[in-house]
Amino acid sequence: MIHRIWQFGLFIILSLVIVSAFLWAPLAKGLGEYTRILYFHVPAAWITVLAFMIGAVYAVLYLRKRELKYDLIAESASQMGFVFCILATVTGSVWAKVSWGSFWNWDPRETSIFILLLVYAAYFALRSAIEHPDRRAALSAVYAIMAFVTVPFFVFIVPRVYASLHPDPLINPQGKIHMEGKMLATFLTSLGSFTVLFLWMFKRRIDIVTIKLKLAKMEQ
């Protein structure tokens, strides 16, 4: 019952976000309709990073506790992160086409999101190359942590070495958000509700993993 209420509430809020992103929120000064993609691009990018972090945390947990459950949860987080990473890449690329004139131009931000895609893909490639579950779990956990340690070099160092045309990220050097009230309200609601959507999907994945493990145990 509680589940249903949550689902329904989330459905309403997400619908509101979509409607207000297209109709209610005003445009940024001097920019065209294309800026509205912001309300979907930024949450997708944020969830990509969040899922990546959750994956790394569960990788560490696996290495400490050695329970297969943590490995499967890390895998679920990475799978969902991968989906959102593709969404962020595609929406960003569409925006780049309209704003900068080409779908892909190796702007430092484009590079960093592409690297994240590669990391996820390599992680799945590694997982599919190892048969034994415990070995797969340990090795992919180590790889996830190694990737987690090196990715900040792309996110923080490379965009500062090379000039980027990307609009200020949410946490810019001045620590300010340049947005009007209505825009900000829509943006923050979108960010929040997409995060809740992700967490809800993630919880479902954890449930599935738990049931799968129980089934495997019963079969033995």
Partner: peptide, 29 residues
């Protein structure tokens, strides 16, 4: 480190470049 990881997996040769590239790209850049 990646060599240590892939030595325990199958399809070693192809995996090495695939796994190393995203990790080592900062050095390249």
């Amino acid at each position: 480190m990646i060599a240590a990881i892939i030595s325990k997996a199958s399809a070693k040769g192809a995996l090495f470049a695939v796994l190393s590239f995203p990790i080592l790209l900062p050095v390249l850049i």
